[in-house]
Simulated assay, not measured.
Amino acid sequence: MGHRPVGSRPPGHRPPGYRPPGYRPPGYRPPAYRPPYHRPPYHRPPHYHYGPYHYNSGWGWFFTAAIIGSTLVYTTSLPSDKECEKITEKGETLYLCDGVLYRSTYYEDEKVYEIVSDPPAEQGQPQSVVGLGLTSPFTRGETVRELQNRLVGAGYDVGSVDGVFGSGTESAVMWLQYDNGLDSSGVIDPPTATLLGYDVPGAAEPVAAPAQQAAPTDPAPAAEADGSVTEQPEVAAPADPEPASDVVPDAGTDDAMDEPQN
Rank of each mutant, 00 (worst) to 15 (best):
A220F: 02
P233V: 03
T230L: 12
S245M: 01
P238S: 10
D250C: 03
D240P: 08
D254T: 09
A236C: 05
P249Q: 09
P241C: 09
P243T: 13
A244Y: 04
P241K: 04
E242W: 07
E231H: 11
D258A: 13
P233I: 09
E224W: 06
E234W: 08
E224C: 15
V248I: 14
D255V: 13
P249N: 05
P249M: 12
T253R: 13
D246H: 00
P233K: 11
A220G: 02
P241Y: 02
D226T: 06
V247I: 14
E231Y: 12
A244F: 00
M257L: 15
V229M: 13
P221V: 10
A222S: 04
V248L: 09
A220R: 11
V235Y: 05
T230E: 12
T230N: 13
V235M: 01
E259N: 07
D246L: 04
E234S: 08
A225L: 14
P233H: 11
P243M: 07
A223W: 06
P233F: 06
P233T: 10
D255A: 15
P241I: 06
E234M: 04
A225M: 04
E259P: 00
A236Y: 10
G227L: 03
A239I: 08
A220N: 06
D240E: 13
D255W: 05
P249Y: 00
D258T: 15
A223T: 15
A236K: 06
A223Q: 15
D226H: 09
P243R: 02
Q232V: 11
D250H: 04
G252Y: 11
S228C: 13
E259K: 12
D250Y: 00
D226L: 01
A223I: 15
A220Y: 04
T230A: 09
A251L: 10
D258L: 14
E259L: 12
E259T: 14
D255K: 13
S228G: 09
E242K: 02
A223M: 14
D254H: 01
E242S: 08
E234H: 07
P238K: 08
P238V: 08
Q232P: 03
Q232K: 15
A256G: 14
G252E: 13
E231C: 05
A244R: 11
V229T: 14
P241V: 06
M257W: 11
D246S: 07
